[in-house]
Computed example of a mutant assay.
Amino acid sequence: MPHQGTPVGRVHALYRYPVKSTSGQALGTAAVTPSGLDHDRRWAVYTRDGGIASGKRTRRFRPVPGLLDWTSELDGHDGVPLLRSPAGVRYRVDDPAASEALTAGFGQALVLKQGTTLQHHDESPLHLLTTSSLAALAELLGGVVEERRFRPNLVLDTGSAPLFLERDWAGGELAIGADVIITVDAGMPRCTMIDQPQAGVGAGPRALKALSLHNGLEFGVQARVDRIGAISVGDLVTLQDTAS
Rank of each mutant, 00 (worst) to 15 (best):
S232P: 04
R227T: 14
G229Y: 11
A97M: 02
W43F: 14
L239A: 10
P2S: 13
H121L: 11
I228W: 07
G143S: 13
R41S: 04
L128I: 15
I181W: 00
I182W: 12
S212R: 12
H39G: 12
I231E: 11
D157Q: 04
P34L: 08
Q198H: 09
P34S: 04
Q222N: 15
L128M: 14
R206G: 03
A203H: 00
P189K: 00
G202F: 00
P2R: 11
R16D: 07
A223R: 09
A53F: 01
A186L: 11
P65I: 00
L27V: 03
F164L: 01
L208A: 10
V80S: 05
R84A: 11
G171D: 04
R84I: 15
R190D: 02
N153M: 01
G143C: 06
L239F: 12
I231L: 11
A223G: 07
L137Q: 09
D95T: 03
V145S: 01
L211G: 04
L134V: 11
P7L: 12
G28A: 13
D75Q: 06
S85V: 00
S160A: 15
G9F: 03
F164P: 02
V89N: 08
A170F: 02
A186N: 09
K20L: 07
V80E: 03
L110A: 08
R227H: 14
V11Q: 08
Q196W: 05
A30W: 11
E139V: 14
I181H: 07
A26P: 01
L134H: 02
D235W: 00
A98K: 04
N215D: 09
G202Q: 05
G142I: 06
L110Y: 10
A101S: 06
P63Y: 05
G187E: 01
S35V: 03
A161P: 05
G50S: 08
T242P: 14
A230W: 10
D78T: 07
L163T: 09
G5Q: 08
I194G: 05
A13G: 10
P152M: 07
A161R: 12
M193F: 15
I176N: 02
